[in-house]
């Protein structure tokens, strides 16, 4: 048998991460005890509404949370058993782009308008590797080709505004791939794109991931996209992970009231004529979260205890966990404190 690193090997392990933002008189607990793993060659989706802490989670993995006002209050981010939170700036700089790369939502704003695409991909390479100019150009061209951009040699000399939205996002992905990272964090990479272009980009990411045996941490608010690409899903709400599990489990057998409510509120053709379920109220302000379970004021299953005690993670087996003891009949008291 070929020696293969076990499929279950954890590449990234986020453990009890807490990221707070302090202002004069408030503490916004943007990420409040988040734990999840990304294994090799796996696609994990962090899904949630705006303000639930998914982007802050990604930024803290990359060491990009501005400190202050930000503060990593607790937790560990283990990448191949090294705690990234212990790295200093220089170490992190060596690490970023090289082992973990990030693709952002808006290629228009995250590409520099005054440099050509070639300059920007070249910069990503030369930051991490000491190789001659001609080799950089050759590699950049190959990268553009890999992400499906036609006539890559000419596109290298183009400025971002000369490319269409989809091509810009392809160029961003090429930049992220420049140093063959093991993990790509994609933060809403298709949100600004048309559905047809979105389908192209999702397919591209999928094929590159398979080809290069990468892992992808994909951040989105779009459950439709999640249902297409995820191996595992983490549903976030108000800074915590409400539920995580395999894609099939989350969509077919959701165990947290928030996940259930989200799925019920998605409009589609089959629900025509029926009223959509709508979650009452709004997402809480991260500085003034409700006591107990942060979802209890909007939850239709809430009981008295939900407002008083913090819910623990309930284990449904096979990596499926939901932070809701009310719907859990495992028999054990799973409330915290």
């Amino acid at each position: 048998m070929v020696m293969k690193i076990s499929d279950n090997e954890k590449l990234l392990s986020v453990q009890d991460l807490k990221v707070y933002f302090r202002s004069e008189d408030e503490v916004a607990r943007a990420v409040d005890g988040v734990s999840f793993d990304v294994r090799r060659e796996e696609t994990v989706c962090l899904v949630g509404e705006s303000g639930c802490g998914k982007t802050v989670t990604a930024l803290s993995i990359m060491g990009l949370v501005p400190i202050p006002p930000g503060e990593i209050a607790d937790g560990r981010v283990l990448f191949r058993d090294q705690n990234l939170l212990d790295f200093n700036d220089t170490e992190m700089q060596q690490f970023r782009g090289n082992q973990i790369a990030m693709v952002f939502q808006e290629p228009q704003t995250s590409l520099n308008p005054v440099f050509t695409i070639g300059d920007q991909i070249g910069e990503a390479i030369s930051t991490h590797e000491d190789i001659p100019e001609s080799e950089i150009t050759r590699r950049s061209e190959q990268l553009l080709k890999d992400v499906g951009i036609a006539s890559p040699a000419e596109r290298l000399g183009d400025y971002p505004h000369q490319l269409s939205g989809g091509q810009r996002q392809r160029a961003m992905i090429a930049m992220a791939l420049a140093c063959s990272p093991d993990l790509i964090i994609a933060d809403e990479p298709t949100t600004a794109l048309d559905v047809t272009v979105q389908a192209q980009i999702l397919r591209l990411l999928d094929s590159i991931q398979k080809l290069r045996s990468m892992s992808v941490l994909y951040i989105t608010h779009d459950l439709g996209v999640v249902s297409k690409i995820a191996d595992r899903v983490c549903v976030m709400y108000a800074g915590i992970i409400a539920e995580q599990g395999n894609r099939q489990e989350i969509f077919k057998n959701p165990k947290h009231p928030y996940t259930q409510a989200l799925l019920a509120s998605l409009p589609n053709r089959e629900k025509r004529g029926q009223r959509l379920y709508s979650i009452p109220g709004t997402v809480p302000n991260p500085a003034y979260k409700p006591s107990g379970c942060p979802f209890h004021p909007r939850c239709q299953h809430a009981i008295q205890t939900c407002a008083e005690r913090y819910p623990g993670m309930c284990d449904y087996g096979d990596g499926h966990h939901a932070r809701c003891p009310v719907l859990f009949d495992g028999g054990k008291d799973t409330w915290c404190k």
Binding site: L202, D206, L223, L263, L266
Partner: peptide
């Protein structure tokens, strides 16, 4: 190109 949960694989897109 609609991403919905009915068709479950990316290659369908």
């Amino acid at each position: 190109a609609i991403p919905d949960s009915e068709r479950s694989d990316i290659s369908d897109m």
